[in-house]
Nucleic acid binder design. Structure first.
Length: 145
DNA sequence: GCCAACGTTGGC
DNA sequence: GCCAACGTTGGC
């Protein structure tokens, strides 16, 4: 099991919209960056991740799970772009803000802090657990389902 | 709204 | 294969 973080501007695709898709989930389309695409290729069904609101909110707001492995991105005809499908699993009761992440020394290695432009990124297990705790979640529930 | 950081494109 | 120009992201 690996852990990830997905960024989305809520104005484009919000956590509320993601939740509306229910158990079936939705394609994480629109990634046009090789690094981000390559991370999606590494994902396995069942991998958990954070849903992060960029720009407006700047906070981890939800837990998601991969429900379909990488496949061609249906939002383009270009076969080089791929994406996974993810579904909403649960809310983060107290969204964990970027400021909080930056203020926590244990999270100083996070890609979110060091490469703010990467829209799909890996999260270490320890980092994932800590952010769950900061958000008011039981890590066991958030990490295993 | 600005701009720094980063990625991509295309001329040479 | 280099690098200048350009476009985009996302924090501030």
């Amino acid at each position: 099991m690996r852990y990830w973080l997905y960024k989305s501007e809520p104005i484009t695709w919000s956590w509320e919209q993601q939740k509306d898709k229910g158990e079936a989930g939705e394609e994480w389309t629109g990634v046009r960056n090789y690094q981000a695409r390559n991370f999606m290729r590494e994902m396995a069904i069942g991998d958990r991740g954070f849903f992060y609101h960029s720009n407006d909110g700047k906070a981890v707001v939800g837990i998601v799970e991969v429900v379909k492995a990488a496949h061609p991105d249906s939002s383009t005809d270009d076969p080089k772009w791929e994406c996974v499908d993810i579904k909403a699993v649960m809310d983060v009761p107290t969204p964990v803000t970027l400021d909080q992440v930056k203020a926590e020394p244990k999270l100083s290695e996070m890609v979110l802090v060091n490469n703010s432009r990467l829209s799909v990124q890996p999260v270490k297990e320890d980092e994932f657990r800590l952010i769950c705790e900061m958000g008011g979640l039981d890590p066991k529930a958030a990490m295993k389902g």
